[in-house]
């Protein structure tokens, strides 16, 4: 028996695409909105705390908020909770800065067995690397555009 005689590639791919189990779009969006919103609300609360209790200036508030959220993202990754959250929240926990912390800490935990230089050192940015490369590149381009607009 030759499967290629009874099954057409294109038709099969079409059939698979049409019939495969799909993501529950609405439910997942709602979860992402809820969890992402909660993380951002926590950020707002940290801002207020920094402003009204710690009396920090504007730059200080931003630094305080980011530092605490990154710490929390790293901490909950370390104790094995962040990946469980991510399973349900999707983009809601990936997009905020806590997700960025998760993307750095998870390879750090994972590759420690391969050593601190060629394991952790080399693999630390496997997930976050592309974001950094294109984020920084985009900021440089934006800077050049601003400069040119300023000169003109």
């Amino acid at each position: 028996m030759d499967i290629n005689r009874v099954l057409d590639k294109k038709n099969y791919q079409k059939y698979v695409k049409k019939n495969m189990p799909k993501s529950k779009f609405l439910k997942e969006c709602a979860m992402a909105f809820l969890v992402g919103g909660l993380i951002c609300t926590l950020g707002e609360a940290l801002d207020d705390f920094a402003e009204y209790t710690l009396f920090l200036d504007e730059a200080g508030i931003g630094t305080f908020r980011s530092a605490v959220l990154i710490f929390l993202g790293a901490f909950f990754t370390g104790i094995g909770i962040y990946d469980v959250l991510g399973r349900y929240a999707g983009a809601g926990s990936i997009v905020p800065i806590t997700g960025f912390a998760n993307s750095i800490v998870s390879p750090a935990l994972e590759y420690k067995w391969e050593g601190y230089i060629l394991g952790v050192g080399a693999k630390l940015f496997t997930i976050a690397g592309p974001v950094l490369v294109y984020g920084i590149s985009a900021s440089v381009i934006a800077g050049i555009v601003y400069y040119i607009i300023g000169v003109l």
Binding site: E28, V84, R87, G90, I94, S106, P107, T126, I127
Partner: peptide, 17 residues
Amino acid sequence: ERQFRNPLELGTPKTPT
């Protein structure tokens, strides 16, 4: 997981398939 996919603690959801 560590060979074919992502680090274990990375918080990304799995696809339904």
